[in-house]
Amino acid sequence: MKIYDLGMTEYEDVLKLQSELLVKRIKGEIQDLLIVTEHKPVITHGRIAEESSIIDKSFLKKNGISVVSTGRGGKITYHAPGQLVIYPIIDLKLKKRDISFYIDVLEKVAVSVLNRIEVPAERFFEKRGIWVENRKIGFIGIAVKKWVTYHGMAVNVNNDITPFGCIDPCGEKNIKVMSVKDYLGHEVEISKVKDIFVEEFAKVMKEEYCSGVTV
């Protein structure tokens, strides 16, 4: 699988790139791929986000954090440097036409990655996302067009989680957020986490989809 390791990016630049790659993947001009990036600070709204999910607009204004509406699923979230973001552009027609199964796969990838770096992450069917000690550390919001996926998942690694206090993350009131740094008490090398993410993504996808067998 081709990896697009973009480093630090503006959210909207990657949104545009995803749209271009999505069209090419739908046409069969390219193969499945994985975008890996960190975003400069930004709040993003999914398709069912509510305006009331922003509870401190003045903080965002003071810190120059923009708000972008997107076509992904889910509600509101925050991206910043130190948070690892992955956007798989995958043709599910060649795997399994089931969105909840695909979200399960993304969650399993993140749990595997976090467990490998000694963070006891968990996932629960009744509440989506990735959790550590009842605090949310991983966030999912995807979109699917002609059974090709785009958008994806973000995991708090070294980022400052304070700005999450300005929103109701994922539209949920009183939700507590966690990062790898806060759990372990020290920063981790983000390039190492990125490499583990790529490895685990390939491994879990192969296990869950039986190596590309059409279902």
Binding site: R47, G71, S100, R128
Partner: peptide, 18 residues
């Protein structure tokens, strides 16, 4: 045929219905 004509949203995903 195949044109996206509606959008549906699940908990964490959007899906364009052809």
């Amino acid at each position: 045929e195949g044109e996206d004509i509606a959008e549906v949203v699940t908990d964490k995903a959007t899906f364009d219905v052809p």
